[in-house]
Simulated assay, not measured.
Amino acid sequence: MSDQDRNPKDDRLVRAYERMLEDAHEAIEQAQNETAPRLREVLDKTRDNLVELGELSREEAQRVADYIRRDIEDAAGFVAETGQDIRDWWRFDLELMERRLFEAFSQVADQTRLQLAQIAETARRMSLYQAGEITGPGTLVCDKCGAETHFVKAGRIPPCAECGATSFRRNPVGREDQQG
């Protein structure tokens, strides 16, 4: 996506995604023994703060919080299912990512892994990513043609560059054999 194609609203939502994720990370560090309900509380509080500050509408803030929940649940489900490292979920060299984002995501995923194991089934059923939504770093695979779209940081999901389809699934290392 070129600079001229970027929508200021998109950049604002991406910044909100990163801010919510950072706030979630900080809260997790302070309360490492807390459970998944604490994560929901943190995201809800951050969402409400962004709305109160006028940075996002209630609907936008809720969508960003839902995107973070989806990504965390998917990452935790992957780690619980495969026993592989969170780095495999991202599926590319960590040198490409900002270190703080990796640490934030790892902390959140590690701290919530056990609690989210119960949610893993729901996450699998709801693991479709749609064009226009925001996602964190990783690789998405087009449901229609199988083309990969790589994200080195949080960003808005574009339609498939190969076929124009709008539905994707995350396909990290270790899940290739589960396609079908």
Results as ranks from 00 to 15, higher is better:
S127G: 13
L114P: 11
W90A: 00
Y67D: 13
V108S: 08
D110T: 06
E103F: 07
V79P: 01
R113K: 04
F92V: 06
D85R: 05
I119H: 05
G77T: 02
R70P: 07
V108I: 01
F105W: 05
F78H: 09
T82Y: 02
R100A: 03
R125F: 12
D88G: 05
Q118I: 09
E73R: 10
L116R: 12
V79S: 01
M126A: 01
T82Q: 01
G83I: 13
A76C: 06
F105R: 13
L128G: 06
Y67A: 05
S106P: 15
A109Q: 08
I119K: 06
A75G: 13
I86H: 00
A123N: 07
R125I: 04
R99H: 09
A76Q: 12
R125E: 08
Q111R: 14
Q84N: 09
A80R: 07
E121S: 04
F92R: 02
R99D: 08
Q84C: 08
Q118N: 13
R70F: 02
Q130D: 04
R70T: 06
I72N: 00
T112C: 00
R124T: 15
V108P: 13
R99N: 07
R113E: 04
R70V: 13
I86E: 00
E73G: 04
T122I: 01
D88Q: 08
Q118D: 03
D71R: 02
R100M: 10
I72E: 01
R99P: 13
F92W: 11
Q130C: 09
Q118L: 15
A117V: 07
A104R: 07
G83Y: 13
L128A: 06
E95R: 04
R124D: 10
R124K: 01
R91F: 12
L116T: 09
A123C: 15
Y129P: 08
A104I: 08
G83K: 05
Q107P: 14
D88E: 03
F92L: 13
F78I: 15
D74L: 14
T112A: 03
R69P: 01
A120R: 03
R100I: 15
Q84F: 12
F105I: 09
Q107M: 14
D74S: 11
Y129S: 01
R125Y: 15
R113M: 11
Y67T: 07
S106C: 05
T112K: 00
Q118T: 08
R70G: 15
Q118E: 07
L116A: 06
L94A: 11
A75Q: 12
Y67G: 08
M126L: 09
R124V: 01
Q107H: 10
L101A: 13
T122A: 15
R87H: 04
R91K: 04
E73C: 14
A123I: 14
T82M: 14
D110M: 03
Q118C: 09
S127N: 08
D85F: 10
E121Y: 10
A104Y: 02
E98K: 15
D93H: 15
L101V: 15
W89A: 14
R87Q: 02
W89G: 00
Q111E: 08
A75N: 11
T82K: 02
L114G: 10
L101D: 10
Q130T: 11
D88I: 07
L116K: 03
I86G: 00
R113W: 11
R125N: 02
L96R: 01
F78W: 09
E103N: 09
A75P: 08
Q118P: 12
E73T: 09
G83E: 04
R91T: 05
T122M: 10
